[in-house]
């Protein structure tokens, strides 16, 4: 029988069992890496941050209170790692300029059609909007979970999601007009 996240987390908390944590990594790596890929738009950096996220989660697993899901707890750590990484590159603004400059120069677009479209669409959003949209649509977090993870007020998160969503809708509508 497959152990639940809660059971595995309890095992990791009690014994620091690396194998149990490995199973949690297998289950949630897609969400965490997907979220960081969409936020960073640099696959190598995103994977490094995802690795740091899981190592940090292993080290501080005792602080997981179980009030939310393990996945949203991981996403909040991933968001912190993302912010730390942005700060390391001197300032978030400089990082935003890089995000806003289109596809990254160091990496050719992958052959994923819609994925490239999605990434391009996400560059039209402000950082807070992109974070809120990615958390809610990519990670499946609720508005309140996203608010808790980012430390933003619930109303602010809702506004960011709605604004971001409207911008994406406009972007895709325009893209369809151009294509047809």
């Amino acid at each position: 029988m497959r152990a639940s996240d809660e059971e595995l987390t309890a095992l990791v908390m009690a014994t620091k069992n690396v194998a149990a944590f490995g199973e949690l990594v297998r289950r949630h790596q897609g969400v965490v890496r997907g979220m960081l890929h969409r936020m960073c738009r640099n696959h190598a950096l995103a994977d490094d941050l995802a690795q740091d996220t899981f190592i940090r989660a292993f080290e501080k697993v005792g602080s997981f209170l179980g009030t939310g899901t393990f996945r949203s707890w991981l996403c909040s750590i991933a968001y912190t790692e993302f912010l730390k990484s942005a700060r390391k590159r001197k300032s978030t603004d400089r990082a935003m300029e890089r995000f806003g400059s289109g596809m990254e120069d160091s990496e050719a677009p992958r052959d994923m059609g819609n994925v490239v479209d999605l990434d391009r669409a996400l560059t039209t959003l402000k950082e807070e909007e992109r974070v809120a949209v990615v958390m809610c649509y990519s990670c499946g977090m609720s508005h309140s979970e996203a608010a808790e993870a980012t430390g933003m007020p619930l109303g602010t998160i809702k506004s960011h999601v709605n604004r971001g969503r409207a911008k994406l809708q406009a972007y895709f509508a325009e893209a369809e007009v151009v294509a047809s």
Binding site: Q29, G30, V31, R33, G34, H37, R38, M112, N114, V115, D117, L118, D119, V134, Y137, S138, R165, L168, Q169, F172
Partner: peptide, 16 residues
């Protein structure tokens, strides 16, 4: 549109 957006994010995360 929401469904489309969710599907796009799911498709993007599929290889992972």
């Amino acid at each position: 549109f929401d469904q489309r957006l969710k599907a796009a994010f799911a498709e993007a995360a599929e290889p992972l």
